[in-house]
Structures are given as C-alpha cells and as structure tokens.
C-alpha cells in the first residue's frame, strides 16, 4: 500500500539535495500544487516563493479564496492578475490543443518574470502521473497536452521540480491529509481552467456564463450529497457548448446556448464512470441554470459517457 509518511520523508530528503537555491512554485490552489507547496516548504523553508495566477478563467471567488488559504498556510505568495494577458493569447484559439498550448506558454512567461525578480532557478509544479501520461511522448499518444507538461515551451529557463510526478490524485490526497492540509478533498480543477470548459473560442464573456453554471452544479450536487440523496461525485462541473437551440420563454421564441452537466466517479482520473445522479437533482440544476441566465441558456443536457471512451473534461 501507499505510505504517505514514508513518501513525505523521502521526498523532503530528495528535495533538500535537488534544490540548491531559490525556487518559485506555481500555486493554482488545487490539491496537487498545495500539497507540493507544503512539501517543498518543509524541505527548503523560506527559499520557496509561491505565485498564483488569476487567469480570468478561474471559478467564482476562487483566486481570492486560494490566496487567503495559501497565506494562512504560511506560503509567501504573490498573485499575478493576468486575465487580460490570457484573454489576448486565447484570441482565435478554437482547437483544444491550441488553447492548452497558448495557456501553458502564458503561464511560463509569467513565472519567468517572477523568477527573474527573485533570482529563482527552479520552478516547482504539482504535476501528477495522469498529467504526463496524457501529455504523451515517444510511443505514448498525446491525449491532451497538460499545461504543466506537454504545453510547456521548449526554451524555458527554469529547471522543473515535480515531487508528485509518480502519484495519482488519491495518493496526493493521502499525502495532503498526512500534512494536515484542509483542502485535501477538494475536487480536481484543470490548470487551463474554464477556458477548456468553453467549447470553441474562449472569451471572458463566455467565462462568466460557464463560471455561473459551474457554481450552480457544484452547489446543488454538494447540497444533494449532504442531504444523503447521492454520493458526491469525484469531479463535477458544467461545460458551455457552442450549440444553440430554439426555446420558448414567456410565449416568445428563444435561441440560446446549451450547457452540459458532467459528473463522474473515479479514484485516479485514469478511468471514470458517469455519476448516477437522481433525476430530481438534475432537474433542479437544469431549472436553476436556465432561470439564472435566461437570455444565455435555454437547454441543459447531462453527459452519460464513461472514460474511456470519453475523457473527464471535454477538452
């Protein structure tokens, strides 16, 4: 079995020898990068500087909450407000790989700037096994270029340190619990954020729609799980599709976008089964999304695909 205590002790020893100067860590506020931050801080102390990037494609209130949480945990954190920079890079990016590469390159450009300021040589990332597996290379096919692996620029100056590379999410959570990290159970959220939950070209306007839809899906499913109506899925969110359909609202024709709800059960993200959400809960989500954004959304569908053949996120 996996022994988090042994993993932590061995990792700290290795990090002490691997990092001989100052390092910055890319903190999204998710489980992986938070666990990596605490682990590396235990090894090199105040030589570690955290950078959280607000890409403009984060969830509701996320960047603010993440910054508070990481500072509470003693991470020396800077927040990069980069919504405009990302939005510009994503102009005209439609194909998922093009989006992921644009996002990966923008992240590194920002980290490079911060690294120069503090003369850091190392970039710590919370990369886990599925990130590099799905990013492909040699014999392995590229399923999706994760922003922290396959979407990195070839000419980057910073040396990568990835202490969680051989772990899956369930193991990272075990390490997180062992280290006393309060957000160890938080659901996964991809680095490219809401930009890959908007099918087609992402815009900040569309980000507003999918952000609200994700918020509703999260709130309703967490409530239903708390009330014992269902098991909380492993990952659950909304996708904004470019499909427009005809509706009728107040005796008037509507022509709005379609939102898809996605929720899956998994252990490690490498296989997944779609969640069997009770119909009453799905219905509540559908009514709330269409009534909250009546001029944008008039249809809600549920994704019933397992992985494989689907992946968890749509892009």
């Amino acid at each position: 079995m996996f022994d988090p205590e042994k993993f932590v002790n061995e990792s700290i020893e290795k990090l002490k020898t691997d990092i001989d100067g100052t390092a910055i860590i890319a903190c999204s506020g998710g489980v992986d990068s938070t666990v990596a931050a605490v682990l590396v801080a235990r090894a090199i102390g105040d030589r570690l500087y955290g950078v959280h990037v607000d890409t403009g494609y984060m969830r509701k209130n996320e960047s603010k909450e993440v910054a508070e949480l990481l500072r509470d945990m003693g991470v020396n954190l800077q927040v990069a407000e980069a919504a405009e920079e990302f939005s510009k890079e994503l102009e005209g990016a439609v194909e998922p790989e093009a989006k992921r590469k644009a996002i990966g390159h923008t992240f590194i450009r920002i980290f490079d700037r911060y690294a120069k300021d503090i003369d850091a040589k190392y970039l710590v990332q919370g990369t886990i096994a599925p990130d590099w597996i799905e990013s492909g290379g040699d014999l392995r096919d590229v399923i999706k270029s994760h922003h922290n692996v396959g979407a990195l620029p070839k000419d980057m100056n910073l040396k990568l340190v990835e202490p969680l590379r051989d772990l899956y999410k369930d193991e990272v959570r075990k390490v997180g619990r062992y280290l006393g990290i309060s957000i160890s159970e938080k659901q996964p959220f991809p680095g490219p954020g809401l930009a890959i939950r908007i099918i087609g070209e992402p815009t900040l306007e569309k980000a507003e729609i999918v952000r609200e839809a994700c918020f509703i899906v999260e709130e309703e499913l967490e409530l239903a799980a708390k009330e014992g109506k269902m098991e909380l899925p492993w990952q659950y969110f909304a996708v904004l599709t470019p499909i427009q359909t005809v509706g009728v609202q107040g005796d008037v024709r509507a022509y709005g976008y379609t939102v898809c709800v996605r929720a899956v059960q998994s252990i490690d993200g490498m296989t997944a089964a779609y969640s069997k959400i009770p119909h009453e809960v799905l219905e509540k989500i559908s009514i709330r999304i269409t009534n909250t954004m009546p001029d944008k959304i008039n249809r809600v569908v549920y994704d019933i695909t397992n992985k494989p053949p689907g992946t968890i996120e749509w892009e």
Binding site: A129, I133, E134, R140, D141, I143, D268, M270
Partner: peptide, 8 residues
C-alpha cells in the same frame, strides 16, 4: 509499449 495505463 506506450499505454495510458502502463504506470497503473
């Protein structure tokens, strides 16, 4: 052999 689940 380049599998998605080799590491599993």
């Amino acid at each position: 052999n380049g599998g998605q689940w080799t590491h599993r």
